[in-house]
Design a binder for these strands. Structure first.
Lengths: 354, 354
DNA sequence: TTCCCCCTTGAAATCGTTTTTATCCGCCGC
DNA sequence: GCGGCGGATAAAAACGATTTCAAGGGGGAA
């Protein structure tokens, strides 16, 4: 503050070089109307005195903010501290994707989808950012609808189920749920539970689809009663597992939506004395790589969450450059990381009781 | 974008009310030179047409950005995904602390302390924000030195050990380490390990101090050989626990710096067949409330990390309003959450072998 | 009644850019 | 040789606010 008397402006540069501020501006922005020699001289002088364009001035004139807004969902209730932990990695990825551009990242904390829409409106109407990134997409997502209608550039992590064209990055949840379920079926499990999040979420439906398809493919009845919808908390994972393992015809396989619920499921099964890895199997999505240290280590589908963030940032940059959103769509399949045995090793629950 | 033809500016408001833009500006900012009646009329009209001052315009004129920058540390290496997970809660807290003010939050991802200093410089010299918040304070912290010297408003999560006056929020790590260690000593443990982060971190030293004091208070020798310095990863927690438990005179008590290393320590001890809760005890700091679901559930010192974030935001607001940083300093003690038994229940390792 | 002062409001400058329009100059073609 | 054209740069307006300073009007005092 006291250090720099006044940082150089375009005017300073004008006095130094003798060119007018108009020429300077054009030169620095690479306008073709300026001579190569002039450009070189101006650029050289700019480097010399350490000139950097003021984002404020640019912003006022161009109407752009050079900011990208990210909607970060958090559940601030006690017991939900795990919620949103993957956002550290997502933000890191987005920042990496934005690197090299003049865009900075502003983060807006939202507590639910309604607040998400309100914040999106604020960002658009208040011109708080040039683009928007968000996740937690619902099958019918009002934010996507609004932003499409407003023509505001955005990229989402996840896809809604409406027929709208917009840039997005997504994980193939349908395939992952199918693969996890099929793996458990192949291991001898028949009573497989799906521990799923809020069914309004688009990927929750994808997971149900994949789960269902695995049974259909195997010619087996779909255990509809074992599909549990809840939140993403460890507490829910635990409660759900306990409920499912106590059924008259208990679940022996568990497909969990994330590491948080998987940890809960393990804790619940442990409390009931169920030996996971022998009498039951758990497969989860894996975002922060903790599953390898659980008891037992879990087989997971690993989401390279930081890479997804990087894609989000990169896509938004391209979207801001005017690229067609139809070309900015990507679907990735998570990698299977096999850790614990998913097979029932001859202690299927219905054996021994027969 | 296409929706709002042009959002109302101060000029629009001027045409609507008949007052000049100067009067409008003063009225909206509550200047005492404007009549109450005029103010009321202008405010009413502003509400009517939905006027909101453009941050861009304000920013250019006042030199303020109405942004608060947060330095978010991330380790993007594989295996370190857990690192920084608490930042979801911290950001949520900061946003809550900023609520009601015109300040928004921009997040700058930094990979190490050096990059942190570079980013801080960019923020200050490029006037990218009006204030700064960061954590991971080192005993000798170049960022703190720089910002103090520059006179730039900032608040830190943690304190350095230099004699500088600045606003900060901190956790009493000295006390927490002392209390955890004393609890294990009281439970009969003598070989207690401290699983600690990078010793350049200020709170790492605080923890060593508290750890040491607990032994001194009890009149016991300090087990210097059991103080392990590493990173905050689960992998390190596991490796450290294995090393410590394999010593000729093994550690039986473990004081872990966070939930990530505690999970690692549990995994390591489990691999060695050590029964935690009987033959060994683990006490950790707890930030995302996962410890209750570990096997066994851990006794922790719970950090209300979102509250700390809220304090950070609030303190920065007050600092920006000109408040003396000497009055903006806070130290909180984490709450003990007793879960697993910390006592050795008569199976001290040296009994039975005698 | 007249002058002055204070109280309220308005005009204009300013912040740092970009962009449109104007100006200057040399050169080509007729 | 002259008109016009085009290439290079400069001048000026604009973005939306704040702030300084000037102006206008009304009321009180002489």
């Amino acid at each position: 503050m006291a250090d720099h008397p006044t940082r150089p402006t375009i005017k300073t540069l004008s006095e130094v070089t003798g060119f007018s501020i108009a020429t300077i501006s054009k030169a620095l922005n690479g306008s073709p109307v300026v001579t190569q020699a002039t450009k070189a001289a101006i650029r050289q002088a700019a480097g010399q005195i350490g000139y950097a364009a003021s984002l404020r001035g640019m912003s006022l004139r161009t109407g752009r903010t050079y900011q990208v807004a990210v909607l970060m969902p958090v559940a601030s209730a006690s017991g939900f501290e795990w919620d949103g932990v993957e956002y550290a990695q997502i933000l890191s990825g987005i920042a990496a994707g934005l690197e090299g551009s003049p865009y900075r990242m502003s983060v807006h904390v939202v507590r639910d989808a309604a607040e998400g829409l309100a914040t999106a409106r604020q960002v658009v109407e208040g011109h708080l950012a040039d683009g928007l990134i968000f996740s937690g997409i619902q099958a019918q997502d009002p934010r996507v609808e609004y932003l499409c209608a407003a023509g505001f550039p955005f990229v989402t992590l996840g896809r809604c189920r409406q027929n709208l064209t917009y840039a997005h990055v997504d994980v193939d949840s349908d395939w992952a749920a199918w693969a996890a379920t099929a793996r458990l079926i192949a291991g001898g499990h028949r009573r497989i539970a799906l521990i799923n999040p809020d069914p309004r979420l688009s990927y929750a439906l994808d997971r149900i689809d994949g789960f269902t398809r695995a049974f259909v493919d195997a010619g087996l009845p779909v255990p509809q009663d074992l599909i549990m919808a809840g939140d993403l908390s460890t507490r829910f994972g635990k409660q759900a597992a306990i409920t499912l393992a106590r059924l008259p015809d208990p679940a022996t396989g568990f497909v969990c939506v994330n590491e948080s619920t998987a940890l809960g499921a393990l804790a619940g099964l442990r409390d009931l004395g169920v030996d996971v890895g022998r009498a039951a199997s758990v497969i989860a999505y894996d975002d922060i790589n903790a599953s390898a240290y659980f008891a037992p280590p879990l087989t997971t589908f690993y989401l390279p969450i930081e890479d997804l963030g990087r894609q989000l940032g990169g896509f938004l940059l391209r979207r801001l450059a005017g690229e067609d959103p139809a070309t900015l769509q990507q679907l990735t399949r998570p990698d299977l990381v096999a850790r614990q045995s998913d097979r029932l090793e001859r202690v299927l629950p219905w054996e021994g009781t027969t």
